[in-house]
Write a protein that binds this DNA or RNA. Structure first.
Length: 849
RNA sequence: GCCGGCGUGGCGGAAUGGCAGACGCGGAGCACUCAAAAUGCUUUGUCGAGAGACGUGUGGGUUCGAGUCCCACCGCCGGCACCA
């Protein structure tokens, strides 16, 4: 345990009134909930409105720690809240239990990843129970169970049937440390998202999901999530999908029958295209160079070799000098007819657009850099100095890009461009596309930054891909009724990463027979990316034990989509994009009637220490079990809920669990001191305390629904302070308003500190459980005060505050304000220009002089 | 470079355009106690003895009134980036 945590008074949880420690209270109610199955979701006959609340399910690495404590607290608060609002709540938990850490741990110990995984899951389960989570424990799932991953395989087959799962040979991201391929989304700054090793490219045949077919929908449907998902996540997904619109233009190549198509967002600058560039690692480059001289071929081979040795980090570094090789071939500009030399250069990517570009050096910085490096011609076709241009009022001659090195990228008026001369950018683009279309040499087009999802992994601990390789090379699916394809035993298998799947060595598993043709066949030895597992798990919770369906469509209709989804921003693209994609596929399959999986999304912040993420490697991981032992679940829950806004990171040193304990004890004591009987008529009680109670009753639902849990806690503190004051120096402990307030504390504290709330509710003489007792409505009469404090401003500055009746008229209020001595002093020697009266809140004398 | 977000006391943070700093942490003082712990009470933005003045990154603007809306700038954080 670190020195920091010890600042939080490490003595064990405080003894509370009636001699019960926080531990006793916690144990008592956890046992009660377990015995009474308090938090099971209602069945099909439950008529209450439904809410489906979910936290992104955990990966079972090690024990639960602070990160889990905060991640899973928020959805639990919301789930518990909706029960008080009369809803049938589904709040399930499961484990994302396939993946590399289990495999790596198994390799280290020469054990089975299953042992490590399920042992950790058991620990997690115990930890969550100790933390007071209101899960429906009858719906637990683990993605590494054959009963679960069977349906990953089913999903794969569904995608395969629709042509959305396919195999291709392509340069893929390869992690040399984990010895497996990675999806684009798992490469962060050129490094493996998991282990941080520099990613290299490798040409391999792999399985892909065709997420690019859904690019438009994935992008356009984000608009409807505005206001329901964090703006940041929507923006990140938009960036990631990265749609560009422009035109495809066909270029004739000398000595080639078929034209070559390129994509451009600036077809208006076609007259300025002076050369042509192909990606060195593209098939087109290989083909073009084959027809060139031996000398060029040798130069090209050297260059390609160099390019392929680069790591992603090297390739992505900006302001790298431009390199390339002239291929001694020419393309013909379709509008001007000029011969354009064809170069191979690595600033053009093989897997974007068509792997080739028309280079317009005057108006594209990259093309200009290349032109200047190799002495290629630069032709200005947009005058950017005219109205609306980037260099408005400048002298075009002085802006010559070949001299300045700065491309003219802005809007302007077309020049040297024949028929489009004089047009502005947008009009010229439209006009050019029209002309190309008419000539049959081009058309409007769009391109996406998004690439297809590479799902093959050369690792053991994942879902086997349900495909068979026949002797003649044909690849056929395992029939649905033969699923699951179960993972073999690890016995005799070497799980160490070696570049091919360890499953390939499981001879008796790999060698099988195609049940359709009866021919001998080899199983596909790769396993699926674990993000496949998590792309639909929220549906499995709806019918977790079904052997008939991945999920029951009727149950999906009843519960889905998820009403409130909680998770870290680290999944802004990865998991959330994949889940959206699979949801749309399932919609197209007619299995669900919605196209977005998560109606509302909350990104909670992390718990950090000294400004940095807590982690095992830094040795500052605070384990949940230690904290539950020292402070108890409720103090931790309350402390975290109060620490700040949900989406902000929380500095652990600033979280005061001692303060949280103090408040909980104070709340319980308020209940213990209450002496009025159950059912006492609150109407006869102290009005001041009742107003605090009823203002909270009025505001609390909104606070929870806007996830302002820290403010809700603050308001509960105010109410408890109000009770204290009333008992000690006001109407006294027997006043029925004290009971009303204490009961309100029990009801509204329940989502945050449920054990204490149950105990308080019971000590106030009620039957358990408080967890589904409806929150009462506020009495509107108590929300309006008899007298209010009005601020009186002179020239916008507050000069006095006056007590007035709440229903005072504007005229009366102005008169009272004018009569105030301080106001008169402030008004002295000034001319009142105007008087603004907003009864009963404010009076403002606008003055002159 | 493109896109987005955020700047409030010593600290975490509150605040439908209407009394900035709720609530808490920390600090100071007091009561209870032989003493401490616990508990309770008072106080705590800055300057000023006080009246009061000044205060939400900076500079403008809109408004009777701006932390909140608009413009420009500064700083920090995040996403994308040789994507044609």
């Amino acid at each position: 345990m670190s020195e920091h945590a010890s600042e939080n008074h490490p003595e064990s949880a405080e003894d509370t009134a009636e001699g019960m420690s926080a531990h006793d209270i916690q144990a008592k109610w956890q046992q009660y909930w377990g015995e009474h199955e308090t938090f099971l979701a209602g069945g099909d006959d439950d008529e209450r409105p439904r809410k489906y609340i979910l936290g992104m399910f955990p990966y079972p690495s090690g024990d639960l720690h602070m990160g889990h404590a905060i991640n899973y607290l928020y959805p639990d608060i919301v789930a518990r809240y909706w029960r008080h609002r009369g809803h049938n709540v589904l709040n399930p938990i499961g484990w994302d239990s396939f993946g590399l850490p289990a495999e790596n741990a198994a390799i280290k110990r020469g054990a089975d990843p299953r042992e490590w995984t399920y042992r950790n899951i058991d620990q997690h389960k115990a930890g969550f129970r100790g933390y007071g989570m209101s899960y429906d424990w009858s719906r637990v799932l683990h993605t590494s169970d054959p009963e679960y991953y069977r349906w990953n395989q089913w999903l794969f087959l569904k995608l395969y049937e629709r042509g959305l799962a396919y195999r291709k040979k392509s340069a893929v991201n390869w992690c040399p440390n984990d010895q497996t391929v990675l999806a684009n989304e798992q490469v962060v700054d050129g490094r493996c998202e998991r282990c941080g090793a520099e990613v290299v490219k490798k040409k391999l045949t792999q399985w892909y999901f065709k997420i690019t077919d859904y690019a438009d929908r994935l992008l356009d449907d984000l608009d409807a999530l505005e206001g329901h998902w964090p703006h940041k996540v929507l923006q990140m997904q938009r960036n990631w999908i990265g749609r560009s619109t422009g035109a495809d233009v066909d270029f004739r190549i000398e000595g080639r029958d078929e034209p070559v198509t390129v994509f451009s967002t600036r077809p208006d600058t076609l007259h300025g295209a002076t050369f042509f560039v192909v990606a060195p690692d593209s098939d087109l480059a290989a083909e073009l160079v084959a027809g060139a001289s031996a000398e060029v071929r040798a130069r090209f081979d050297d260059y390609l070799d160099q390019v392929q040795k680069q790591t992603e980090i090297e390739r992505q570094s900006t302001d790298r000098p431009k390199t390339g090789v002239f291929l001694e071939r020419y393309a013909i500009n379709p509008v001007g007819g000029e011969r354009m030399p064809i170069w191979a250069a690595d600033y053009v990517l093989a897997d974007y657009g068509h792997g080739a570009v028309m280079a317009v050096p005057a108006h594209d910085q990259r093309d200009l850099d290349f032109a200047r490096a190799f002495g290629l011609p630069v032709k200005i076709v947009v005058d950017t100095t005219v109205t609306g241009g980037a260099n408005e009022g400048g002298d075009l001659a002085e802006l010559d890009p070949s001299a300045t090195g700065t491309a003219l990228v802005g809007n302007g008026r077309m020049v040297n461009s024949g028929e489009v001369d004089g047009l502005d950018k947008a009009t010229a683009i439209a006009s050019t596309i029209e002309r190309l279309q008419a000539a049959g040499t081009g058309r409007a087009a769009k391109n996406f930054r998004l690439r297809d999802w590479l799902i093959s992994r050369q690792r053991f601990w994942g879902t086997p891909i349900p495909m068979l390789h026949l002797q003649d090379g044909e690849v056929v699916p395992v029939p649905e009724d033969r699923l699951p394809v179960k993972l073999p035993s690890v016995e005799g298998l070497d799980l160490r990463p070696k570049g091919t799947s360890p499953l390939g060595a499981a001879e008796s598993w790999v060698r099988t027979v195609d049940p359709v043709s009866g021919e001998p066949a080899l199983r596909d030895p790769d396993t699926m990316d674990t993000f496949v597992d998590s792309s639909w798990y929220f549906l499995r919770f709806l019918s977790p034990n079904s052997e008939e369906f991945a999920f029951d469509p009727d149950q999906a209709k009843r519960w889905a989509p998820v009403d409130g989804y909680f998770g870290g921003v680290e999944h802004a693209i990865l998991h959330l994009l994949y889940a959206r994609f699979i949801t749309k596929v399932l919609f197209d399959l007619g299995l669900i009637d919605f196209e977005e999986p998560f109606s509302n999304l909350v990104n909670q912040g992390m718990v950090i220490m000294d400004g940095a993420k807590m982690s095992k490697s830094k040795g500052n991981l605070v384990e949940l079990s230690d904290l539950l032992g020292q402070y108890g679940a409720d103090a931790l829950r309350l402390g975290l809920a109060f620490a700040g806004p949900v989406e902000d990171d929380k500095e652990w040193n600033g979280v005061s669990l001692a303060g949280a304990q103090k408040f909980l004890a104070r709340a319980l004591r308020a209940g213990d001191e209450t002496t009025s009987p159950v059912g006492a008529d609150a109407a006869a009680g102290d009005a001041a305390l009742r107003r605090i109670t009823h203002r909270l009753l009025a505001d609390a639902p909104g606070l929870v629904e806007q996830t302002k849990f820290n403010v809700l806690v603050a308001r509960l503190m105010e109410l408890v302070n109000g009770i204290r004051k009333t008992i000690d120096s006001g109407a006294g402990a027997a006043d029925p308003a004290v009971r009303e307030a204490a009961e309100t504390v029990a009801l509204m504290l329940e989502p945050i500190a449920p054990h204490t709330a149950e105990e308080l509710w019971a000590r106030l003489g009620h039957e358990p459980s408080v967890s589904a007792v409806p929150w009462p409505d506020a009495d509107p009469a108590l929300l309006v005060q008899d007298t209010v404090t009005t601020a009186v401003q002179v020239g916008g500055k507050v000069r006095a505050t006056i007590e007035v009746p709440a229903d005072i008229s504007e005229a009366d209020l102005e008169a009272v304000a004018r009569a105030d001595e301080k106001v008169q002093r402030a008004l002295e020697g000034k001319e009142i220009v105007r008087v603004i009266v907003r009864a009963p809140k404010i009076v403002n004398f606008a003055v002159k002089g």
